[in-house]
Simulated assay, not measured.
Amino acid sequence: MLAVNNVSMHFGGLVALNEVSMTVKDGEIRGLIGPNGSGKTTMINVITGFYSPTKGTVEMDGQVISGKTPNAVAKAGLCRTFQNINLFSEMTALENVVTAASTHQTANLASAVFKTKALKDQEKQCYDRARELLDFVGLAGKEEIKATNLPYGQQRLLEIARALATDPKLLLLDEPVAGMNEQESDEAANLVHKLRENGKTILLIEHHMKFVMSLCDTLTVLNYGKVIAEGTPSEIQNNEDVISIYLGKKRGK
């Protein structure tokens, strides 16, 4: 579904990514991990169109999406959440999700001016879909609460609901449990399992190792802008290079 092909990203003399390649298969939960400064955020921004790579390409279903704008990438079927919560804080939970769902509306200016039946039907579909998604992520009954008034963990869930409203083929979750307590993290893990069961493909970036290892099929590990390891959670947990970058030493030394 997603192919990152020999991508490099330079900022002047700084090489943030150095010929990184990675794939995400249809139906997979792929984890992208690494210590702070390893290049994960740069990688995310290249994949989602916030940066255009210095070298290499990113493909979605065989079509090149690198160099396209973030909204064009979203229309291609890749939507993301953010490490730092990025909701419309003064809108209600329902309005936040409706805003994303409305990207699929096809009504033109004339129908908006004259409030045609087609427009009203599409608006109803957006609101119905938004309520379904809020229920799916566990926010039923919270529709009319402003985003800023929701507890932190529920704001995270609202971001996921909003991303799902674009009906993505691939959902990129950027540190979805950052700042959550253990109970909230467990609830988020259950939600990711539900997403998989409902056919979603997921690229997961997270520092919470228990969360990552319990969910991912395959992991890619970055360090200093390079891929240093790939494999199953078990293989990664026993990889000496990975142990070294996280613990600062080889195992048993």
Score class of each variant (00 low, 15 high):
31 G>P: 07
243 I>W: 05
169 K>R: 12
69 T>M: 10
135 D>T: 12
203 L>A: 07
247 L>V: 11
199 G>S: 09
236 I>C: 06
136 F>I: 07
47 I>P: 00
40 K>T: 06
2 L>F: 03
191 L>N: 01
132 E>M: 11
7 V>H: 01
215 L>D: 04
156 R>Y: 08
127 Y>S: 13
43 M>Q: 07
144 E>K: 15
202 I>G: 02
243 I>C: 05
188 A>Y: 09
83 Q>I: 00
218 T>G: 13
120 K>H: 09
117 K>S: 13
103 T>Y: 11
204 L>Q: 04
67 G>P: 04
42 T>G: 12
223 N>V: 10
16 A>L: 05
249 K>M: 15
115 K>C: 09
229 A>N: 11
198 N>T: 11
91 M>L: 15
1 M>D: 05
142 K>T: 11
222 L>G: 02
7 V>A: 07
242 V>Q: 05
214 S>K: 14
118 A>M: 13
87 L>M: 05
39 G>M: 03
65 I>C: 00
101 A>I: 08
155 Q>S: 14
126 C>L: 14
208 H>V: 08
120 K>S: 13
201 T>F: 00
105 Q>P: 12
205 I>Y: 01
86 N>P: 05
152 Y>L: 05
125 Q>H: 13
250 K>S: 14
90 E>I: 02
231 G>P: 15
170 L>I: 15
46 V>C: 06
201 T>C: 02
223 N>Y: 10
111 S>G: 10
62 G>M: 09
128 D>Y: 08
161 A>D: 07
105 Q>E: 15
99 T>A: 15
54 T>V: 10
96 N>V: 06
136 F>K: 08
24 V>S: 09
63 Q>G: 07
8 S>W: 02
102 S>Y: 10
38 S>F: 01
29 I>C: 09
88 F>N: 10
56 G>H: 04
76 A>W: 03
112 A>P: 11
167 D>V: 06
168 P>T: 11
30 R>M: 04
25 K>A: 12
198 N>I: 06
173 L>R: 02
4 V>P: 01
57 T>D: 14
237 Q>M: 12
233 P>Y: 04
4 V>S: 02
132 E>Y: 11
45 N>D: 08
7 V>G: 00
4 V>R: 07
205 I>V: 12
144 E>W: 13
234 S>R: 14
43 M>I: 13
23 T>A: 02
6 N>D: 02
82 F>S: 00
189 A>D: 12
217 D>P: 07
198 N>Q: 12
84 N>L: 08
67 G>Q: 03
170 L>M: 12
174 D>R: 00
76 A>G: 01
219 L>N: 01
47 I>D: 01
107 A>E: 11
21 S>F: 03
200 K>P: 02
227 V>T: 10
237 Q>E: 09
30 R>E: 08
187 E>F: 11
23 T>D: 14
59 E>C: 04
123 E>C: 14
96 N>H: 07
60 M>G: 00
251 R>E: 12
156 R>Q: 12
59 E>G: 05
112 A>H: 14
111 S>H: 11
138 G>N: 11
59 E>I: 00
